[in-house]
Each structure stands twice: as structure tokens, then as C-alpha cells.
């Protein structure tokens, strides 16, 4: 077993849906190894997105705790969590979430700007080249196709050289060809730059790109494929 980069212990999360209480995550334990590509699969409502959100610090757990690189989410302040998100975490959304008024290039370098660091042109160029969006650098999001948008979002997530990238159904809005292209590029680039990826998907074919597959059912981790 490789080095564990992210660990969750006894985490649970509840939501209220109308008058009903929903337990999205139930007392879950989880370990993510560095440099691997994880796919989280499960039926709709199984808690995949919630898991991704709590792991990527976008949501807080109701109980239990999560450690990234040995730092526990529950013990640090909100601003420290934001810093963690900025420096060590990259997020890719299903609906891309690009800034409409920024160009492709500006969107990609935005995390670097927010972090106040020098833009590494060589690295950004490599990423863009790898994701085949170099020629689109001056285009605005409304001028791009779905696949191009998602590749831009992936490039943005990789811009700060994060330790771990969380992707929430990154191919959910793409046709089959584009989906596989995006998946291939995500796989290749993360492997090239040694980044850990946790991807949520309900597409079992796409999940085959992963080194390990985690299966969720009703907020509980019921098993994994590729476990040692």
C-alpha cells in the first residue's frame, strides 16, 4: 500500500429534504493513497457528491473528521481550510463553473492569481497542450464546446499543482466521444504530474480508467474494486 494522502474517520452528514431527514453519509471510514486515480461509483442519492464535497472541504461533516496530508479539517479554521483548498486541492465540477467573463487562459491561471504566486507559463503551457486547448487560450467560455469547457476546467484544477484533484462527474454533460476524450486526458495528465484524483461518476465504463473504484450505497462504503 502506498502513502495515504487523505484519511476519513467516522464521518457522517445529514440533510433535511422537506420534512424528512436524509443521512447522506453514515459513519464512513476512508483512505486515499497518493498518486492513484480513484473512481467513486454508486446509484443516484448514494452520497457520492456529498462525499466529494466534504473531502474537498466544500462542506463540513456533522461528525467524524478528515485529514489531508496529516492536517485535520475539524481542527483548523475556515480560512486555513480555504488555504488548503487553494494550495493542495483542485476541483472539477460537472457543470464546469468557469468564469464567463474570463478567457480560457485567464480562467486557468486564476487559482495562481488567487494564491498570489508567479504564473508558471511553462507548466500551464504543458497542461494546456496535454489537454489540447492551447489554441483556445483567448477564447471565452461561451465560444467553447462542452468537452473544451471541461478540459479547461481540468486545466484550472491542475494549475496550482494540487496534491489531489476532486472531479464531480466531469463527463456528465458530455457526449460519449467527448467523455472518453476528457477522461483519457484527465488520466494522462494526472499520471504525468503525479496528482491524486478522486472522481465521482455513475458511468461504470469510465470508472474503468481508475486505479481503484469505491462503491457507495445509501451513504455507506460497500466495497471497492482494485483494493489490495
Amino acid at each position: 500500500m502506498g502513502k495515504v494522502i487523505l484519511r476519513a474517520r467516522g464521518i457522517f452528514k445529514n440533510y433535511r429534504a422537506g420534512n424528512r431527514m436524509v443521512s447522506a453519509l453514515k459513519q464512513m471510514d476512508l483512505e486515499i493513497e497518493e498518486g492513484l486515480f480513484y473512481a467513486v461509483v454508486g446509484r443516484s442519492g448514494s452520497g457520492k457528491t456529498t462525499l466529494l464535497q466534504v473531502l474537498s472541504t466544500q462542506e463540513e461533516v456533522d461528525g467524524g473528521d478528515i485529514w489531508l496530508d496529516g492536517e485535520a479539517y475539524g481542527t483548523i479554521s475556515a480560512s486555513r481550510r480555504a488555504l488548503l483548498r487553494r494550495k493542495k486541492i483542485g476541483v472539477v465540477f460537472q457543470e464546469y463553473r468557469l468564469m464567463a467573463e474570463l478567457t480560457v487562459y485567464e480562467n486557468i491561471v486564476l487559482p495562481s492569481l488567487l494564491d498570489g504566486r508567479e504564473i508558471d507559463g511553462e507548466y500551464i503551457g504543458k497542461v494546456m497542450n496535454l489537454l489540447e486547448i492551447e489554441q483556445l487560450k483567448d477564447a471565452y467560455p461561451h465560444q467553447l464546446s462542452g468537452g473544451e469547457l471541461q478540459r479547461t476546467a481540468i486545466a484550472r484544477a491542475m494549475a496550482n499543482r494540487p496534491r489531489i484533484i476532486f472531479a464531480d462527474e466531469p463527463t456528465g454533460q458530455l457526449d460519449e466521444t467527448s467523455a472518453f476524450q476528457v477522461m483519457r486526458l484527465l488520466r494522462e495528465s494526472s499520471a504525468l504530474f503525479g496528482q491524486t484524483v478522486v472522481m465521482v461518476t455513475h458511468n461504470k465504463q469510465l470508472a474503468q480508467y481508475a486505479d481503484k473504484v469505491l462503491v457507495l450505497d445509501e451513504g455507506t462504503l460497500v466495497g471497492g474494486i482494485g483494493d489490495d
Binding site: A78, S79, A82, R85, R86, V91, F93, R97, L114, R156
Partner: peptide
């Protein structure tokens, strides 16, 4: 809210 959501996901703190 959408815009601030993106910025937050990219690591901007509440105060920022």
C-alpha cells in the same frame, strides 16, 4: 452566488 461559489472552490476565504 455562483461566482463566489467558484472563487470559494478555488480557495478564496470568506473574508477575501
Amino acid at each position: 452566488k455562483t461566482r463566489t461559489g467558484i472563487l470559494r472552490s478555488l480557495g478564496m476565504g470568506e473574508s477575501e
